[in-house]
Design a binder for these strands. Sequence first.
DNA 1: TTAGGGTTAG
Length: 461
Amino acid sequence: MVRCLSGRLSTKLLNISIASFCKAQRLEKAEGLIIDGIRLGILPDVVTYNTLIDAYCHVVSIDAAYFVLDRMREAGISPNVITYNSLIAGATRKCQLSRSLDLFDEMLRMGIPPDTWSYNTLMNCFFRLGKPEEANRLFRDILLGDLSPSAATFNIMINGLCKNGYTNNAMTLFRKLQAYGFVPQIITYNSLINGLCKARRLKEARCILKELGESGQFPNAITYTTVMKCCFRSRNFDQGFEILSEMKSKGFTFDGFGYCTVIAALVKTGRIQVATEYMKEMVSNGIQLDIVSYNTLINLYCKEGKLEAAFRLLDEIEKRGLDCDAYTHTIMIDGLCKARNIKGAQQHLAYMNTMGFDSNLVACNCVVDGLFKVGQIDNAMNMFESMEIKDSFTYTSVVYNLCKAGRFHFASKLLIICLRSGMKILKSAQRAVLDGLRDSGYTAEAKKLRSKIRKARLLHH
DNA sequence: TTAGGGTTAG
């Protein structure tokens, strides 16, 4: 049957079959088909090899794709612009950015003129390298040369400018493009919204979101998770949860990333019950748990006081052959501290150190705080003094706990040293010192401290 | 070829 078809048509059919195997990531099947084809006299052409090269870039590696390129040349078929575009995009995806640049040069040396697609990919590569000027140079080349920019060209520019901190330029370009008749796509809107959120320009982000709504297009799952994450980041939890319920009511679902974000935010705001429901939903939706999802769930169990369940998950991690990371151990240490099992926490900290996660600041902060909470004030102070690195969490905790232990004068001294050096101390800890001094009869000291606090604030404004 | 990413302490 195959022999009856003309050679060209047969190659076309061969290519269709190869493309479908490549799409299913069954490269050995695709390779087998090429061998069968050759036996039957059906020769692969440039499309066959390009399909295969693109698949190797996606599924295996650029090196593997390069071997296919060699085979292609040996078969007497010259690579074209599509071959190189696949290789350049593949290298950029795998963060082999200098390789992308080399491939672009190689393409020029071979006398293959790059198209808009090649330029787009290379612009993206320069943005990822943190070289916006170079990307902009290519953008100018497109505008001044014979090539026509595509929607992707504009999207890559807007996204890249935002990612490199040029949110203003991204906004200006966006408005200019609109004035020239470019209709922004959902990708354009999402890029800009994300850039504005990251730059904490929430008012403008809201404005672009409104324009998206008025454009006749609809926000998608990426829009929702971007805005939700932005709310959580700025601690507008209620607003974030409103967006979450709107997203759910529209029928959007989560992947592992989305679930972790939502569960962590729910735990942070004490909504343990709802967080547990999301955890169940995540598991029943068949999401493969990785170490970050395990950490999120262990944290949830710890906050519920279900330490045994947390330890069971640790066993599960081990059984599945995954490795615990610094987060896993820190979460466990905090959980043990909160459960007043300070000995267990100290043991786990020592274990963590033997595992090579030594001097983890967050874990140490948890143990110092834990020691105070169980009344081991001297041990807490000894550990605090022995720590080489300290941050605002360390000091806030120590200042606050010293007050709880009635050591207001010491707390006051420490507080003022911190504030003068520009260290941020939670207002609630500052208040604890002032109230403590005043309530125990040291009104004059309290007044003096208040004035010192004010002056220290002026120093760092 | 282009958009979002997740987890810890006061």
